[in-house]
């Protein structure tokens, strides 16, 4: 099939603009990123600079790939990362618009590549259990109900790709942050630090320049791992509980 791509280019000779590329011969079995590989091979063969985009595992788990495809992070298919989008969903003659994530907390580095290290700093603020290597007791010493373990897993399945931020009109980091707060709050291992954790992580989130949550729920709709906004509700409860019981808060 023949496709037209409108791709945001920024850096080097590009000040920040959409550049149009025609791809005359796209195979329906290709993945979306393989299509961009073909474009880049072609640009290199014409001695032009390839389009910079991030990717790694290409099986939807590492969280490296991003892109806003026709206005939607990771494209329009539910529960799918960009690397899992296949060209069979497109038809001959389609035009596809490809942009980087847009958020104050995610500065553009080049073309479609943004800096998402703010998410790491939120985890560094408290997204862990303080247990040194060797301090652990036997793994079966504390039973965890299957339901709690399963729910904790649902929250822990976040791949840290940042699509929630890109989807949100406020560029809020609430879904990402709340998924980690929930994951650890739902397990007994995370209880000792739950109050301190939520306060520290929310404070870091605000410092990084993420916007506030106004219940649009676009984050949940676009999350490739379908992380629920229930996590945000849980984080708000955790936060409130922490504020009212902590002497150091606020």
């Amino acid at each position: 099939m023949k496709l037209t791509l409108k791709i945001w280019r920024q850096g080097g000779k590009y000040k920040g603009e959409f550049v149009t590329y025609e791809l005359p011969n796209v195979n329906a079995h290709m993945s979306f990123l393989e299509m961009l590989d073909v474009l880049n091979e072609d640009l290199v063969s014409r001695r032009e600079e390839p389009v910079a985009f991030e990717h790694d595992c290409r099986e939807g788990i590492c969280g490296t790939c991003s892109l806003v495809i026709d206005g939607r992070p990771h494209g329009p298919w539910k529960g799918t990362t960009t690397c899992q989008v296949h060209m069979r969903h497109y038809k001959d003659g389609d035009t596809i618009v490809i942009e980087p994530y847009r958020a104050k907390a995610f500065p553009v580095l080049k073309d479609l590549v943004v800096d998402r290290s703010a998410l790491d700093r939120i985890i560094q603020a408290g997204g862990y259990v303080s247990v040194n290597t060797g301090q652990a007791q036997d793994a079966n010493a504390i039973p965890v109900s299957q339901e709690d373990a399963s729910k904790a897993f649902d929250s822990a399945a976040c791949i840290g790709c940042g699509a929630c931020v890109a989807a949100c009109p406020n560029a809020s980091g609430m879904l990402f942050t709340s998924a980690k707060v929930s994951h650890l709050a739902m397990l007994p291992q995370g209880h000792a630090e739950r109050r301190k954790r939520v306060l520290a992580m929310v404070a870091q989130m605000d410092t990084e320049g993420f916007g506030q949550c106004s219940n649009v729920k676009a984050c949940e709709a676009e999350c490739p791992k379908e992380i629920s906004v229930d996590n945000i509700a849980r984080m708000n409860r955790e936060y409130a509980a922490a504020v009212f019981t902590s002497e150091t808060a606020m």
């Binding site: 862990y128 259990v129 247990v131 290597t133 060797g134 301090q135 652990a136 007791q137 036997d138 793994a139 504390i142 373990a149 399963s150 904790a152 897993f153 822990a156 994951h183 650890l184 397990l187 291992q189 995370g190």
Partner: peptide
């Protein structure tokens, strides 16, 4: 043991 203590679900 270590992984469970870290919160691995």
């Amino acid at each position: 043991d270590q992984c469970v203590a870290q919160g691995v679900p």
